[in-house]
């Protein structure tokens, strides 16, 4: 499955979800969108958003370190099957 990456590090709410929505519009059935955010608040926001969204789902969320060693929050999104 192809994975697109959207880097929203440094952005605070509502921008990570606003930008993700734009990317998702062109996402195909066999693609996933990986959103990389630096804002901890994005974790519950993506969770809450995906819960009520009829078209897209949250496949996975995890915490990682980016190449500079900073804490980032990764959200994997896909179309609902």
């Amino acid at each position: 499955m192809n994975e697109k990456t959207l880097d929203v590090r440094g952005l605070k709410c509502p921008m990570p979800i606003v930008k993700a929505k734009k990317e998702l519009a062109t996402l195909t059935r066999d693609e996933r969108l990986k959103v990389v955010a630096s804002d901890r608040g994005s974790v519950l926001d993506f969770r809450g958003w995906a819960k009520q969204n009829p078209t897209f789902q949250l496949v996975e969320q995890r915490e990682e370190k980016d190449e500079a060693g900073r804490e980032v929050f990764v959200h994997l999104l896909a179309r609902r099957s």
Partner: peptide, 8 residues
Amino acid sequence: VPYFSFID
């Protein structure tokens, strides 16, 4: 009413 509802 979460802000993302207004976006959706």
